[in-house]
Design a protein around this nucleic acid. Sequence first.
DNA 1: GCGCACATACCAACCGGTCGGTATGTTGGC
DNA 2: GCCAACATACCGACCGGTTGGTATGTGCGC
Lengths: 224, 224
Amino acid sequence: MSKASSSEAKAADTRTRLLDTALRLVRERGFAATSVNDLCAAAGVTKGAFYHHFASKEQLGVEAARHWADGTSALFAQAAYHAAEDPLDRILGYVALRRRMLEGEIAEFTCLAGTMVQEAYAQHPPIRDACGATIGGHAQTLVADIEAAIAARGMAPAWSAQSLALHTQAVLQGAFVLAKALDSAAVARDSVDHLERYIRCLFAADAAPPAASADAPATSEDER
Amino acid sequence: MSKASSSEAKAADTRTRLLDTALRLVRERGFAATSVNDLCAAAGVTKGAFYHHFASKEQLGVEAARHWADGTSALFAQAAYHAAEDPLDRILGYVALRRRMLEGEIAEFTCLAGTMVQEAYAQHPPIRDACGATIGGHAQTLVADIEAAIAARGMAPAWSAQSLALHTQAVLQGAFVLAKALDSAAVARDSVDHLERYIRCLFAADAAPPAASADAPATSEDER
DNA sequence: GCGCACATACCAACCGGTCGGTATGTTGGC
DNA sequence: GCCAACATACCGACCGGTTGGTATGTGCGC
């Protein structure tokens, strides 16, 4: 609306519809198995429109990964777990949210970047890099909280905040793979439960927060 | 050799060469991106030979998953970690072996089943099932040791041996995905280090083994 | 001399990508 | 206020090449 012309708005809409449809089809079938023809048909646009907006199928892959990152980062940015006082509670809140997201159908909770990168890894370096940036960028949103939780407890762990953040993503990606292989969302949930247990274990070793506020019950959960 | 006719031997060789080549190409490129023509050319056989041994490309996928399972199960069956006295040492020995395997190139340590199932999940149920059986079957080889470690400590954990066995596979599969996405084997090794720490934590909580033998130093490692 | 293990030639369908054309704005000169 | 000149967004027929799969021929061990 505002000041955009109608043609611009329509073009953006076509592009977005293409990207959203690509997200769906690639998550379902993989990148290679999603043909440009199929994608266009599913999005209700012609091939001409597709190649007007994207230089190649590979570039669609790159932009789809970015579009996916945009969507997910918006979703997690507004999540409630950021409000917790104790940084550990924020981390556990993140894990609890991921765990809750595994209660739907498999096709709905899997990760575009993780699915696509396995195929794109050797064949489409630009796509691989975009997927790497998506996953790495998402992991990065956890690092500050992990560092804060370490600092609050005066810990000096053998592991880095960065490596733990990436480990959470590895567990999630692996949970998706197992869910698909065993056709079971339950197995993915179990794995995230193990992850939660691990994080509690890491931060439980050096007891409770040292001083100041007296209202933190160490672990406050409000789901299930 | 022994009593097999030379034609039988040759046929088995052609078939095996096709399967071995499929393992390599599919791990590198994915299933959809590996064409039958490419596969035949790489294996040095003709298309006629391919369709003599496999009814379809999908069936090749199924048999490739089984062939992969055969190879890996043989590899792990003869590994040294089975010899450890304490079941926990056997589990940690397995994890240490997996961790050591991550020291090569990415293309050499990734898992055929995990790579293929992401594509095959919705499109080729027979392949998905074969991959599920491969991963599930491999996880199963850990269950007895985990149960023994639980029993030896008189534990009654909130988690099942089965779920921990599957969790190890989730971490490994996720480590492969991250290694590909970030083009870094180190990130995969870090994740397996976290897994090892988690397992030690799970079994450390309820102290040392209760009685009997007095020679077990709780954790014996012989690598690095 | 028969059948198994291939080899060769071939097929229709589909692939990613191109290209000439058009419908619909948008803009600047007057 | 209008129109010529241009830009954007899209259309869909078409291209060469590749796909999974097949039909038929051939050599060779038993």
